[in-house]
């Protein structure tokens, strides 16, 4: 088996390229090879993608018990794959599911674990992993012991995807695992059914924060989002106070987004908020406080009262839309 194994399941997730990049660099630093492991049905195009990022092997492990992506089956399959292949590191894109599966795997293997990883280096044979902490206000460097594979989950919005200098054609292999003993301990009573598009996939997001002042002003955020052809998001206080649904929350513990354009309105730019939008290509800040942290992240800024600026911006955006052929 490969020395560094990037693992995934379900649909291709945003951030898989970044995770493969992280994995390839780690494999290089360890003087080993990068491989990919897909649990359950392999998504289309995964082999090309893995090769594009330098994976030399693509392992698939399928079993009817993996069909629902239940955590018990995933963990069991991963434990068996790790025991059989003895990789030096197992790397996950830090998805919602991986936030549970990765540490459970570490628990089963008694292996070191680091979440929120943004960089890995090897010095004198010792693996050092940098992870964000305090929402990103600090970076913590952890020295990782050699017992068991290092289990790492990558904060993919903080990593840049770089294809391999020369693409590989991964060797395809089918792994076997015995999952007959698995029965999921968690029973799904009502499945999640998101209505409409997800913030994760939005190209444009207009987000409102506490600076909006009142619940009814969130309508302005929705109007601007619509005028730009994007989605409305929010900072956590708006969710905490019940102004908007949790499905709107952008940030460390909300949605991790990567839009082309992120307009932050009345948002101070706390690290935990930025963890969910710092990967945006262009950030625009509208805030009355010239010293707000958000201006340190923004490409464009308007200092002023958002309740005056938003209506003007909605008008300007609509006018431009109408002028478009």
């Amino acid at each position: 088996m490969a020395d560094v194994l990037v693992c995934g399941w379900g649909e291709l997730v945003r951030g898989i390229e970044e995770t493969l990049t992280f994995g390839r660099k780690l494999a290089f630093a360890l003087g080993g090879k990068l491989g990919a492991l897909v649990l359950g049905e392999a998504p289309k195009g995964i082999s090309d993608l893995a090769g594009h990022y330098g994976a030399t092997t693509l392992d698939t492990l399928s079993d009817p018990r993996l069909a629902g992506n239940g955590a018990d089956a995933l963990v069991d399959a991963l434990v068996q794959a790790c025991r059989a292949g003895a990789p030096r590191a197992v790397v996950f894109p830090q998805t919602f599911d991986a936030r549970l599966v990765a540490p459970r795997l570490a628990g089963r293997l008694g292996a070191p674990i680091v979440m929120n990883a943004i960089n890995a280096e090897v010095e004198g044979g010792i693996l050092r992993v940098t992870a964000s902490a305090y929402g990103g206000d600090t970076h913590a460097v952890y020295e990782v012991a050699k017992e068991g594979p290092a289990i790492l989950a990558v904060a993919t919005t903080a990593v840049r995807a770089e294809p391999a200098p020369s693409p590989t054609a991964p060797t395809l292999r089918e792994l076997a695992a015995n999952l007959s003993g698995v029965s999921e301990r968690i029973r799904i009573i009502e499945a999640a059914s998101a209505k409409g598009p997800r913030l994760e996939d939005a190209g444009i997001i207009v987000a409102g924060g506490r600076g909006l002042g009142a619940r009814e002003h969130f309508a302005l955020i929705e109007q601007l989002a619509e005028a730009f052809g994007g989605m409305a998001g929010a900072s956590r206080p708006l969710v905490d106070d019940g102004w908007v649904d949790a499905s709107r929350q952008v940030g460390l513990t909300g949605h991790i987004t990567r839009p082309a354009l992120y307009v932050a309105v009345g948002i101070s730019g706390a690290s935990q908020h930025m963890a969910g939008c710092a990967a945006a290509k262009t950030i625009v800040a509208i805030n009355k406080d010239a010293d707000a942290a958000i201006f340190k992240h923004a490409r464009y800024g308007i200092i002023g009262n958002c309740l005056e600026i938003l209506p003007a911006l909605i008008r300007a955006a609509r006018e431009r839309r109408q002028a478009e052929p």
């Binding site: 674990i113 992993v129 600090t138 913590a140 460097v141 952890y142 490409r299 200092i303």
Partner: peptide, 23 residues
Amino acid sequence: KTRLVRQLVPALHGHCELLTGAP
């Protein structure tokens, strides 16, 4: 199995263009 050996405060290099004038 993991040991914190260093913590640092990442630097932020902002280059925000402020747009001025009436709303």
